[in-house]
């Protein structure tokens, strides 16, 4: 079967597709996260191996590492869609960047928060000016800057493009910022945060962590698509297809708090 992907580059076509994907993704994400929680708490040893064994608090790894990975991955996604949007001038790409940014900011905050509660028992401090911690904080500022710039500009076309340019500038600067924090003294570099070493982690711990990462990843998709649908609706509320959709739903019965569900049902009926 040949799928015409460009068909979904139009918000009109993507809206129902995202609507079908969101529940599936959300359920899958919830299942994976619950499985990872179960596995992480009941099937793993009480100590993290190594020269300096960490006690039960190491279990924060199951959310800390996936959250940190997601925070970086989502920034890459944000910058990539920004670039696509600026080059091809596609509205949906810009909407995607806006859909991804808040979720990315949440994961960045979570990486910092869980890191603080992991750092306290293992390093004896909630915060340290360690390169990775500091870079994660800067990443958080970049997400906030992106959202702040976008919301400060009223004209949505200018807002989209300005924020996209900022995201790309941020992406170019990130490695330099990371390097500068990592090596404040270029004569001699050192860091406190342990290197990530996936190979010498106990397999049950690794399983729980990777499943959680997959769960967070699917969750990000679900959240981004759900937000994308909101953004599409908001921006296109005066367009013909949204009017038709709402009118059709309104004709079916009184639009009330459950209007959204009626609308969904109606749309499914149309697309089926």
């Amino acid at each position: 079967m040949k799928i015409n992907w460009f068909k979904y580059a139009a918000p009109t076509a993507f809206y129902p597709l995202a609507g079908r994907l969101v529940p599936v993704l959300a359920v899958a994400a919830a299942a994976l996260v619950l499985f990872a929680l179960y596995w992480g708490f009941f099937e793993t040893p009480e100590r993290l191996g190594g020269t300096n064994p960490q006690k039960e608090y190491y279990r924060i790894i199951f959310i800390h590492v996936p959250a940190a990975w997601m925070s970086m991955w989502l920034y890459l996604v944000l910058a990539a869609w920004s670039a696509v949007g600026l080059v091809f001038n596609t509205r949906l790409s810009f909407m995607m960047t806006n859909a991804v940014a808040p979720t990315g900011a949440i994961f960045t905050f979570l990486a910092l928060w869980t890191g603080a509660f992991w750092g306290r028992p293992s390093w004896g401090t909630y915060w340290d000016w360690d390169p990775r911690l500091t870079s994660e904080l800067i990443l958080f500022f970049l997400y906030i800057g992106f959202m702040a710039l976008h919301s400060a500009i009223d004209d949505s076309r200018r807002a989209d493009r300005a924020a996209a340019l900022l995201a790309i500038v941020g992406l170019v600067m990130l490695p330099i910022i990371y390097w500068s924090i990592n090596c404040p003294d270029p004569n001699n570099c050192a860091a406190l945060h342990q290197r990530s070493s996936l190979t010498d982690i106990e397999s049950n711990i690794l399983t729980a962590m990777l499943v959680m990462t997959l769960g967070f990843w699917l969750y990000s998709f679900a959240a981004a698509f759900a937000r994308l649908r909101n953004i599409i609706l908001l921006r296109e509320q005066d367009s013909a297809w949204v009017r038709t959709m709402v009118d059709a739903a309104g004709a079916g019965g009184p639009a009330n708090a459950g209007g959204g569900d009626a609308l969904d049902a109606n749309r499914r009926g149309v697309s089926a």
Binding site: I144, I153, M173, I176, S180, I181
Partner: peptide
């Protein structure tokens, strides 16, 4: 933009870090 100055600091200060360091 309204409040451009504050916004500007939010956007630009993180990028100044390497020079500061």
């Amino acid at each position: 933009l309204r409040g451009g100055g504050i916004l500007l600091s939010l956007l630009i200060l993180p990028l100044y870090i390497p020079v500061l360091v």
